Amino acid sequence: MTAVEVSPVRKRGRTKVFVLFAALLMALVVVALVSAGAGQYGLPVSDVLRALTGRPLADPYAEGALWAVRFPRVVMSLLVGAVLGVCGALMQGTFGNPLAEPGVVGVSSGAAVGACLSIVFGWTFLGAFTTPGAAFVAGLITTFAVYALSRSGGRTGTVSMILTGVAVNAVAGAVVALLMFVGDQAAREQIVFWQLGSVAGARWSYVWVVAPLVVVTAVVALAAARRLDLLSLGDRQARHLGVDVERLRLVVICAVAVGVSAAVSYAGIISFVGLVVPHLVRLVVGPGHRVLVPASLLGGAVLLAAADLAARTAVAYADLPIGMVTALIGGPFFFWLLRRTRTREGGWA
Rank of each mutant, 00 (worst) to 15 (best):
M1Y: 06
V4C: 11
V6N: 14
S7P: 00
P8K: 04
P8Q: 00
K11N: 15
G13Y: 13
R14P: 00
F21W: 14
M26F: 15
A27D: 09
A32N: 08
V34K: 14
G37W: 13
G37P: 15
G37S: 08
L43G: 11
V45K: 10
S46T: 13
R50M: 15
T53M: 15
L57V: 09
L66C: 08
A68P: 07
V69L: 15
V69I: 12
R70P: 05
P72H: 13
P72K: 10
V75Q: 03
M76W: 10
S77V: 02
L79I: 05
A82D: 00
V83T: 07
V86H: 00
C87D: 08
C87I: 04
T94A: 02
P102Q: 07
P102C: 06
V105I: 12
V105R: 01
V107M: 02
S109R: 13
G110P: 02
A111F: 02
A112V: 11
S118I: 09
A128S: 11
F129G: 00
P132N: 09
G133T: 10
G133F: 06
A134F: 12
V137G: 03
T143Q: 06
A145H: 11
V146M: 04
S152Y: 15
G153H: 14
G153W: 15
G153E: 06
R155K: 07
T158R: 06
T158D: 06
V159C: 12
I162K: 08
L163N: 08
V166W: 04
V171P: 12
G173R: 14
A177C: 04
M180W: 04
D184I: 09
A186Y: 10
A187V: 07
A187L: 09
Q190G: 05
F193T: 04
W194H: 01
L196S: 08
S198Y: 06
R203I: 13
Y206K: 14
V207A: 04
W208A: 12
V219P: 00
A225D: 11
R227S: 15
L228Q: 08
D229Y: 14
L233C: 07
G234S: 09
A238G: 06
L241W: 10
V243C: 06
V245H: 10
E246N: 07
L248A: 00
V252H: 00
C254W: 00
A255C: 01
A257R: 01
A257N: 02
V258N: 00
G259T: 00
V260R: 00
S261K: 01
A262G: 05
A262E: 03
A263L: 12
S265W: 09
S271P: 05
S271T: 14
V276T: 12
V284W: 10
G286D: 05
R290F: 02
A295C: 07
S296G: 04
G300W: 01
V302T: 03
L303R: 03
L304M: 02
A307R: 05
R312N: 07
R312T: 11
A316L: 03
A318M: 13
I322D: 05
M324Y: 07
F333N: 02
F335Q: 12
W336F: 11
W336T: 05
R339E: 10
R340T: 08
T341N: 06
R344P: 09
G347N: 05
